[in-house]
Design a protein around this nucleic acid. Structure first.
Lengths: 171, 171
DNA sequence: TTGGAAAGTCAACAAGACTGACATAAAATG
DNA sequence: CATTTTATGTCAGTCTTGTTGACTTTCCAA
């Protein structure tokens, strides 16, 4: 177990207060409630389609990285292939996702959103972006910078790497 | 649908960039990955006890507000009472939670952690706090302030009120 | 005092995670 | 060329955690 800062010599008294269990706990609870808000709008929309959060996640990342393979998506989502397969199957069957056999490596399936899939993706992400945008605007640019910084520190390093490669493609 | 800022006259060019769909989308993905990190440590611990995240949440908020009623907890957790009841039953049966019939209103149950329940709560929250603390320390005080501000803006107003009353008790 | 509302409990079901076993096809390797 | 590894898909079964519906007990107000 690490030294948790109570006796750390390099911290200012402001930092000592800032790192009290109480303060950290507030952050934990804020994270819990905020995540509920974060998923609330897409969840509401998904009810109309008989899809769930799992479908949303798949659609999101296929939209983000078109042509991604199943294996790649597995890595990003952190679920088992059986679990992802169930979701993908329904999305392919319903005509929202196109699964194309790889040209170089025919074992691979490359995933793309169809027009229909893209429409749902737009609907979902627009709802989610609207909330985020409102929060960002209310909080201001500096707060957003801090928000992003703390989130990056919270995730596992592996996910942090994954996120940075993903955003460098997408930008 | 609201004006999303692209033509908003009061925004600086820095803000225009800052509010691009791409930037917002990065935030969404960061939130997703960070939440995974956020729950990873408690989840690992819970495996040893045959409990899940739902048990953790109940334990957390009972610890936070000892003597809270089932109804109150329902409000905080945002699940159905039947769902919460299953979790509470196992916790009571296993001797982690004490459920006392209300004195004023005998319909109510007031919930308390037992010594055993407190021990698990400590183990779980210490693991979670350790990660949060590390993230906070790496990000710095200003970033943490921004983090908290954005999270509060992201949650539903009802939850924001709930959080503020909760923290005013706990502090 | 009685009927409705509120708090909590029990039962059954569904979504979405999991593990394990197995199949197929293609690529990589000796 | 034979063997092994990799990528994907599938079937079956389990677990957690959410849901709805039906029920009991308790309280309160008409």
């Amino acid at each position: 177990m690490q030294n948790q800062g109570l006796a750390a010599p390099s911290l200012s008294s402001e930092n000592l207060l800032f790192l009290t269990d109480e303060q950290v706990r507030k952050g934990i609870e804020a994270m819990f409630f905020a995540y509920r808000g974060f998923t609330a709008d897409p969840d509401r929309i998904l009810e109309n389609y008989a899809y769930g959060r799992a479908h949303h996640r798949a659609i999101h990342f296929i939209s983000r990285a078109p042509g991604t393979t199943v294996n790649n998506l597995l890595e990003i989502l952190g679920v088992t292939k059986q679990s992802l397969n169930r979701v993908l199957r329904t999305l392919v069957d319903d005509g929202l996702v196109d699964s194309r056999i790889g040209t170089r490596d025919k074992r691979e399936r490359h995933l793309y959103l169809t027009e229909k899939g893209n429409a749902l993706e737009q609907e979902l992400s627009e709802a989610q972006r609207t909330r985020m945008r409102a929060a960002y605007r209310a909080a201001g640019p500096d707060a957003v910078q801090g928000f992003r910084t703390v989130l990056e520190q919270m995730m596992d390093p592996r996910m942090r790497r994954l996120l940075s490669t993903m955003t460098s493609i997408g930008n």
